[in-house]
Amino acid sequence: MEEFIQQLTNGLAVGGIYALIALGYTMVYGVLKLINFAHGDLFTYGAYLGLTLLTSLALTDRLGFTLGMVVLVLMVMGLVAVLGAILERAAYRPLRESPRLSAVVSALGASIFLQNALMLIYGARFQVYPDNILPTATLNIFGLYLPLMRVLIVLASVLMMIVLYVFIQKTRIGTAIRAAAIDQGAARLMGIDVNRVILMVFLLGPALGGIAGLMVGLYYGQVNFTMGWVYGMKAFTAAILGGIGNIPGAMVGGLLLGVIEALGAAYLSIAWKDAIAFCVLILILIIRPTGLLGERVADKI
């Protein structure tokens, strides 16, 4: 039982990261019906930018831990968001009226480009965050070891998701995003600037992905240029699992995928962990063809 709860918390910590990245996939998909395969690489850029800013500006030394972290998070969010907007402009906007899959191939090309650019800038070796930046306290709750940071990671990702959800549901821009997701043409007729909505989505999604990258870098300590593929694929799976296009779905999908992986590794087989996760995904899709929280919509290609 103790081990079960330990594994559950392990899974939730990983799942929180998946969920944050999945939000980027799901928002872009909601509005553009585009699978942004380069999103995982934006996540990696977040991790690398965070490392560079942290070491070159020595933010935590100069501003103290809390303020330094806040500044760092804001800078990474801003930079990755700008990168996302550039990506949209260069690789996706020219293809907006084209067959959907053309944009997918463009996204794949962009992903290869971004990944290799990172390799050439930083070198192919693993990059390592300086240690001793984060407090390493470990909470001991009834014999369960929970590193403080893991708890904070889960809390931070859930908090960000709630903020995003409120933003989408309650603000004017959020309403515009939802409108554009339902019907771009009609939204345009209602006077919504769809280009701005798309830009907004490409700022928000990458910003969240960037934070996820920074969190992975800070907590796990090592980053490498190919990690976007692994995390991106997991997050995409999570987004589909929850029902792509649906924001709470991405959260549920992410956390659930993390837990499935941890429990699969614990009670079935570590080596088959990813295969188990995919099997569960396929089973869920057979039962609910549009994911857990996805709405049944007519396919328009």
Binding site: A90, P94, S98, V105, S106, G109, Q115, N116, A117, L120
Partner: peptide, 22 residues
């Protein structure tokens, strides 16, 4: 050499943008 996949990714992107129908 090491930049070959970088150029390849860029070319894929550009080709798709120039010929969106394939």
């Amino acid at each position: 050499a090491g930049a070959r996949m970088l150029v390849f990714g860029l070319v894929m992107m550009v080709m798709m943008v120039v010929r969106p129908q394939g």
